[in-house]
């Protein structure tokens, strides 16, 4: 199994002067996926989907349960090793690139200290698969639109040739055209490189369009894990019927 998550839990503690507030972001999440599989995770705000994405990307520690890639615990991977397995794409494309660095420097970072001699070729090829031209390398991030920046972020993630890309609301702040554009890029990247993509979103239509498998999260739990067609057939779950009703409006 590529990724196996068992009984995962995460509690955010807000320390006050007297006592503390606790919030269970994840509460016993079980989940697994095969190599090359892609899926979308949907759920409302506060359902735990971003926390889930960050934990499986090793950006956040968790409190209970286990996360394993290829049967090996996520905590026993060092960051260099791990960077070749999982990469992440973030919600806000405007903050995804260092405003003080040219695109070239941002992308070269993927090679670490010693960039190979063919680094420029690799970058060029990756840019192409993200629908970008080579000339953007000499520009600064503020010269690009949100959609373009998000594509640059996709290219950066691809340079490492990861097995999995976690995309956390990658088009929440983009217009419909750019949304569609990014979804198409994801699809073609998936087809060409065999990379798995987990798309975290609250946009149900985009989620259905993107993947066959769909997970619905609510209050820190996975309440449904099924094919995109079957997910909404089950009417007895109150949350799912609510989601459906919201979609039809």
């Amino acid at each position: 199994m590529f990724l196996e998550v068992k009984n995962l839990s995460k509690t955010y503690t807000d320390k006050k002067f007297f006592g503390e507030n606790k919030f269970n972001a994840l509460d016993g999440v079980d989940f697994s996926m095969k190599d090359g599989e892609s899926l979308s995770v949907i759920g409302g705000s506060g359902s735990g989907k971003t926390t889930f994405g960050r934990i499986i990307s090793k950006l956040l520690d968790f409190d209970g349960g286990s996360v394993k890639y290829y049967g090996k615990d996520i905590k026993s991977y060092n960051i260099t090793e791990f960077s070749g397995i999982v990469q992440m794409i973030f919600q806000n494309p405007y903050a995804s690139l260092n405003p003080k660095l040219k695109i070239r420097s941002s992308l070269l970072e993927a090679f670490g200290a010693g960039a190979p001699s063919n680094a420029e070729d690799i970058i060029e090829k990756t840019l192409e698969s993200a629908g970008l031209e080579k000339k953007i390398l000499d520009n600064f991030p503020h010269q690009f639109s949100g959609g373009q920046r998000q594509r640059i972020a996709v290219a950066r993630a691809l340079i490492k040739k990861p097995k999995l890309i976690v995309a956390d609301e990658p088009f929440a702040s983009l217009d419909v055209y750019s949304q569609n554009n990014i979804t198409e890029i994801f699809k073609s990247v998936r087809k060409n490189t065999g990379v798995s993509i987990i798309l975290i979103t609250h946009d149900i239509a985009a989620a259905i369009k993107f993947a066959d498998r769909m997970i619905i999260m609510n209050e820190g739990k996975i309440i449904k894990d099924d094919s995109s067609e079957n997910v909404f057939k089950e009417k007895e779950n109150a949350y799912i019927t609510d989601l459906l009703a919201a979609m039809e409006i």
Binding site: S57, I79, S83, Q87, F90, L97, E109
Partner: peptide
């Protein structure tokens, strides 16, 4: 906590580079 710092972390960028190239200039 900005996304570009997190992204660089995911790329296994060294601590000193994070410190002097990503955070200090900003």
């Amino acid at each position: 906590e900005r996304e570009f710092v997190l992204a660089s972390k995911m790329l296994a960028v060294s601590k000193s580079r994070l410190f002097f190239i990503h955070i200090l200039p900003n």
